[in-house]
């Protein structure tokens, strides 16, 4: 059974341990701005929402890439950016309607969640189980996808 990230905003306290773990593991720095998962803080509602790539099946980023640099990791289901192939054209960053592929000017490449090869650091770092890595069928990512599917681009991905 393939696993995916399950995010439960109700449990998130906004501690951003996930952002620190992600940026340290992937970029070698404790710097939330380099994190592939981002915690959105809605202080007026007292709500915190960790947010990252859902690894959609027909991924916009993958389809839009002009040089085939985003490929499927068959073991994890993650859409992975191959740094050696990415030219840094950024088309994927506007094609992804979730805004979860971002350009890193320091490297001249784009970065996105790759599920850490199947052992995501964000889930391990989360002290409240707001982020867990569990069987794909049990995740709430459907909600995010449903919202996107209502969009024009969503109709395309579902085609």
């Amino acid at each position: 059974m393939q696993k995916s990230l399950h995010i439960n905003p109700e449990l998130c306290t906004g501690c951003v341990q996930c952002e620190l773990a992600c940026s340290y593991d992937n970029e070698g720095v404790f710097n939330p701005s380099k994190s592939r998962i981002k915690v959105f803080k809605f202080h007026d509602e007292g709500r915190f929402v960790p947010y990252t790539c859902t690894q959609c099946s027909d991924a916009w980023c993958q389809q839009a890439c002009p040089v085939d640099a985003i490929t499927l990791d068959a073991a994890t289901g993650a859409k992975v950016v191959n740094d050696a192939t990415c030219v840094g054209c950024k088309v994927c960053t506007i094609a992804c309607p979730f805004g979860t592929v971002n350009y890193n000017a320091d490297t001249g490449k784009v970065i996105k969640c790759d599920l850490c090869g199947g052992d995501p650091e964000c889930a391990k770092a989360c002290p409240t189980d707001a982020i867990t890595f569990i069987d794909a069928n049990w995740t709430g990512l459907g909600k995010m996808r449903d919202w996107a599917m209502k969009t024009d681009a969503g109709a395309q991905a579902g085609a």
């Binding site: 701005s33 981002k38 950024k90 960053t93 506007i94 094609a95 992804c96 309607p97 979730f98 805004g99 979860t100 592929v101 971002n102 350009y103 890193n104 000017a105 919202w147 996107a148 209502k150 969009t151 024009d152 681009a153 969503g154």
Partner: peptide
């Protein structure tokens, strides 16, 4: 450069 794709998401929603 961060999260600009959200603009597409918002427009096409």
């Amino acid at each position: 450069t961060d999260q600009v794709g959200c603009i597409r998401g918002l427009i096409q929603a």
